[in-house]
């Protein structure tokens, strides 16, 4: 079971609610994913065409709403967005995103750390989106992050775990859950992250834009479960070199 900030989740898949063709498809895909937590974004209401209310479509008793601060370019903007999200009745959870570079949407480590410190002080449960930097992971944990969300590769590139070696260090050193975010384009990517020992993964685009989002959600759920089972049952390993089966030299000095 995944536990973040004292709350337990049976599924280790977190699903984003963006980019779905319709509310109905989103609702069905989220249901199929088995997730207990969904990310949502905060936007100005179009007064001429309010459209569907997400909070009416998704049952808040069934899903923890994890509002993000997407669009924030610095700590101050992210903090304001988080407070607006709390005022919208989503609770204290926030997925902190500070992305000043619109081209790469890479998270700003300095501003993310500042915002984490400020939001923790304000009583938020903060899950910062971060580059896969093990030292930054330490600082964010020390600042009180409830979980950390390192990226696998650039947003939207579907390139999988290009940050594998840093992710391994982050996971090994982590004192809070590690949720791999960004770049997971296929269920196999999610399985790899889980096999490495990640506590959970967050997926949106790969499900939302699939030909059949509901079935793809099911595929991700199965991959996450498979990866976790493999991790917990102890993976067989690939030897770095052909292992000499019985080297005998070199220990003749022992008495």
């Amino acid at each position: 079971m995944l536990t973040i900030a004292g709350r337990t989740f049976t599924s280790r898949l977190i699903v984003g609610t963006g980019k779905f063709a319709s509310s109905a498809v989103m609702q069905a895909a989220i249901e199929a994913s088995g997730t207990g937590m969904v990310t949502v974004a905060l936007r100005r209401v179009d007064l001429n065409d309010p459209g569907d209310d997400l909070m009416a479509v998704l049952d808040r008793r069934q899903y923890v709403f994890l509002p993000n601060t997407s669009g924030a370019r610095n700590a101050a903007e992210a903090v304001r967005l988080a407070h607006l999200a709390r005022a919208s009745g989503a609770g204290d959870w926030v997925k902190l995103e500070v992305t000043p570079d619109p081209r790469t949407l890479l998270p700003d480590p300095v501003e993310t750390l500042k915002a984490t410190e400020a939001l923790v002080k304000d009583g938020f449960i903060v899950l910062p989106y971060m580059n896969a930097d093990p030292i930054l992971a330490q600082h964010l944990q020390a600042a009180g992050a409830a979980a950390i969300m390192p990226l696998g590769s650039l947003i939207g590139t579907n390139q999988g775990l290009l940050t594998r070696f840093q992710l391994e260090i982050i996971i090994e050193q982590a004192r809070v859950p590690v949720v791999v975010d960004a770049g997971l384009g296929a269920p196999s990517h999610a399985a790899q992250a889980m096999e490495m020992g990640a506590d959970a993964v967050l997926v949106n685009t790969a499900i939302a834009v699939a030909g059949d989002p509901v079935r793809m959600a099911r595929a991700f759920a199965a991959a996450v479960q498979a990866g976790r089972d493999a991790f917990e049952s102890g993976l067989g390993v690939t030897a770095p070199v052909a292992a000499a089966s019985s080297p005998q030299s070199g220990l003749g000095f022992l008495r």
């Binding site: 977190i14 699903v15 984003g16 609610t17 963006g18 980019k19 779905f20 509310s23 989103m26 969904v38 990310t39 949502v40 974004a41 905060l42 936007r43 100005r44 209401v45 007064l47 209310d53 997400l54 909070m55 709403f65 994890l66 509002p67 993000n68 997407s70 607006l84 999200a85 919208s88 989503a90 997925k95 995103e97 949407l105 989106y129 969300m149 990226l151 696998g152 947003i155 939207g156 975010d181 960004a182 770049g183 997971l184 384009g185 967050l202 997926v203 949106n204 685009t205 790969a206």
Partner: peptide, 13 residues
């Protein structure tokens, strides 16, 4: 006034 609410969105991937 600024009126905001949740919309679909969210994950970085």
């Amino acid at each position: 006034l600024e009126v905001v609410r949740f919309v679909g969105g969210g994950a970085s991937c």
